[in-house]
Design a protein around this nucleic acid. Sequence first.
DNA 1: GTACAAATCTGAAACGATACAGTAAACCCG
DNA 2: CGGGTTTACTGTATCGTTTCAGATTTGTAC
Lengths: 347, 347
Amino acid sequence: MAEMAEDGQGGGPRPGGAKGRPTLRTIAYMTGLGVTTVSRALNDAPDIGQATKERVRLVAGQIGYRPNRAGVRLRTGKTNVISLILSVETEVLGLTPHLVHGISERLAGTPYHLIVTPYDPRTDPLGPVRYIVETGSADGVIFSRIEPEDPRVRYLRERGFPFATHGRTAMDIVHPYFDFDNERYAEIAVRRLAARGRERLALLPPPANLTYCQHMSTGFARALDRLDLTEIPIREVTIDSAHEAIEAEVGRMMRSARRRPDGFVCGSASAAIAVISGAEAAGFEIGRDFDLAVKDSFHMMEKFRRQTVVIHEDFRAAGAFLADAVTRTLAGVPPGELQRIDVPPDA
Amino acid sequence: MAEMAEDGQGGGPRPGGAKGRPTLRTIAYMTGLGVTTVSRALNDAPDIGQATKERVRLVAGQIGYRPNRAGVRLRTGKTNVISLILSVETEVLGLTPHLVHGISERLAGTPYHLIVTPYDPRTDPLGPVRYIVETGSADGVIFSRIEPEDPRVRYLRERGFPFATHGRTAMDIVHPYFDFDNERYAEIAVRRLAARGRERLALLPPPANLTYCQHMSTGFARALDRLDLTEIPIREVTIDSAHEAIEAEVGRMMRSARRRPDGFVCGSASAAIAVISGAEAAGFEIGRDFDLAVKDSFHMMEKFRRQTVVIHEDFRAAGAFLADAVTRTLAGVPPGELQRIDVPPDA
DNA sequence: GTACAAATCTGAAACGATACAGTAAACCCG
DNA sequence: CGGGTTTACTGTATCGTTTCAGATTTGTAC
């Protein structure tokens, strides 16, 4: 084990004006105050004189003091870390980078750091959450792929551990979340496909275990009912399926007279690519033989298949809101005030 | 400031069999050994008996002991954190999520955590690096957007701080890196466009300050020379420009008889979308009026513009290699052994 | 002038880990 | 069997911070 940049800390109790990074001791020495006083002054404690506080803050600012995170963490248990738990089943298009950037933008300027914890939802849904709680390696967590009865939500709430979710549960637990109104999305999507004269619509949904699958299906079904359109069911694949599987299934549907849709509502941009590709491979053309609606946070569809019905979903805003929700939870804001549903505009 | 999940730690020196998370003290109490012995046993120190080591490890395993990171960090300065420094100018398509997943996959099972630090390359190239070194908030860093004379590389090496870069410098400093052979990429791209009979080629390069811009330009120029083709220069825009700017510039080029290329070599997938879109908006068709080559880690181009010449770049492998490079640097492996250039296959 | 309260400030202890400088026992040698 | 070495283990100090329980000074009331 090589120890790089070791600073050889032998040599007895060193004076306040030490060499390395300034600590409370350094400030205490410079101001002539006690370490305790300096600490309390910087934390704006009520029993420290105003003049002293200002003097301490001035010195601290001048010498570029920053509290040692390990010291704080050891003493208080506060890590100043927010953990984003990411599925390794990457939604390659857009979600991850936008979410990450939204979060870290909002965290910049706060004492919080963002750490990314990967997990495999199939084998280990509770693993990372449990790890974080048990080891106390973060003050709060953010995660997505929320289920109606989400064990992570229950686990965290039972232990009073702060979190915010990207998506809603169907539980009676009130917790911070950001969600896109997928019910509304599906309705709008159907409406706009209907406006193009489409009548036989298929929904390529998210995996059935996720809450927003139900939302999307509900909105889809209701709009179909209202407009008196036909649903062509898709059962074999979801937006999480491999592209090849989606393409194959769409190909089969298009080639079958009975099961052929003339419109698709798609749960993700990535899946939409596969749908279009599968339909085209079977000889069908978007805009002519079928239409497709999709959520997108990127402008790719609009460029490559201008006929696509695109409804914008803002993952960066989601990240920013979630970061905010967690830090405000840590500041004591009640969860009921930290919920938002992003409703797509009807236009 | 609400304190959640506080565990009320009053009550005098508590016994070894405490309530909360097990510490070295817990194990010491259970085994009847001293705390020091337990620590050294777990760290496989040479002066601890074999039998004792095994006994300690057994107990530690049974009760699920995990070292307190804050304790270790405070005492030793070791954070067990790798920081990925990400530009907020997101390369939305593919790079970020793949890199993040590649890194965290490789870090899983090690004691290392991944933290993501955002920065704005225009205003603050050195900022996050300096912050990390000064506050000691990570053991090593990974970053991209490398310049031939990269101040971050110099800064880190001067201070002996471990790092690995995604991209190369032109400096004499030997350091760990992963790079894609962009020179080779450009050559292959040109060759394949030439094979389609294209003769007037334009390169949409990365920003000129990045090292791989030079690599790509060199490869491009050399292949043009060798095959006796014409270069149509692009000066106004790079792959980092706004899509609108790229579209506009490509539109102008296509409409001008003198400046019209019949082939594009593109530095990124995102930019390629804009190029195609710009050319199509001007009434030109890929495969008929022009061809385009692009690096892609996703399979979108192949689906939407089947004529595209796609050369695959594996960002996940990059992430895995870089994570490995940093941890191995920390383990004392010399930097010269931690370099890799990913050469795209000629096929 | 005494008693009490308020306003400021402070040392010691603790969080969990490891480095250092030992100590105790066993072993080896002539 | 004394002296020296080796083996195995341990107490103390320390990293930087905050909490706790005072301590000191000043102000106020009677």
